[in-house]
């Protein structure tokens, strides 16, 4: 028990790091994921191909490998950023592939006639998607996106291995200070639960708000 009270600020810093990674990478993943989903259903072939390649590459690369590629690869091309930013990029890009597929599944639940009606009124592809299709897709997309963001929160632990302050990484200094491994990890687990259950709670609320019968 004393491991938590003695090292409250260490745990706090780690938890805050995980929250930051989750929020920033989550925002990036949502923005990019929705955009790429738009690409994948667009009438322009080049965009569809780009979207497919994006998803295929990122979804099929182990996240650790992706971290290596970003943290070691980008500096070789002269892109030198703080490790935290690299971690957000890697996590965000990786998660965007899953968000994209969830959004695309949602788009497919919207009856074809909705898009046809929008187009018959003179709406462009972008207007049809943003005004008619996506708002209706959102309802069915809320649960899988919640799951994806929970996975993101847990995946952010990998950033700890790359010198980014986050929750899991706090075990190392605590271990060196001689605290018992079990209680160290129990409190880390509680920290993750705080983050993931918060995400689950938020998405539960969203679902109740927007998931109403049509």
């Amino acid at each position: 028990m004393s491991v938590l009270t003695d090292n409250f600020s260490l745990y706090g810093k780690g938890l805050w790091g995980t929250v930051q990674l989750t929020l920033l990478a989550g925002a990036l993943a949502l923005a990019v994921g929705v955009l790429i989903a738009g690409f994948r259903v667009s009438p322009v072939k080049a965009l569809r191909v780009f979207g497919t390649v994006w998803v295929t590459v990122l979804r099929n690369t182990p996240l650790t490998l992706l971290f290596f590629a970003v943290l070691l690869g980008l500096p070789r091309f002269g892109v030198v950023l703080p490790f935290m930013v690299f971690a957000v990029l890697a996590l965000g890009a990786y998660t965007s592939a899953f968000i994209c597929e969830a959004v695309r599944a949602g788009i497919n639940t919207v009856p074809l006639g909705q898009g046809e009606a929008a187009r018959s009124l003179g709406m462009t592809f972008g207007q049809t998607l943003s005004l008619v299709v996506l708002p209706q897709a959102a309802r069915s997309v809320i649960p899988p996106i919640g799951s994806t963001l929970i996975a993101l929160a847990k995946n952010s632990a990998i950033a700890g291995s790359f010198s980014v302050t986050e929750l899991l990484g706090t075990y190392k200094p605590l271990n060196e200070l001689g605290y018992g491994i079990v209680w160290t990890f129990v409190w880390i687990a509680v920290g993750y639960l705080i983050v993931t259950l918060s995400i689950a709670g938020i998405f539960g609320l969203l679902e109740r708000r927007f998931g109403v019968a049509r």
Partner: peptide, 11 residues
């Protein structure tokens, strides 16, 4: 255009 299945924007 008016469709058989109305296609009003459901939301």
């Amino acid at each position: 255009m008016v469709f058989q299945s109305f296609n009003l924007f459901a939301h």
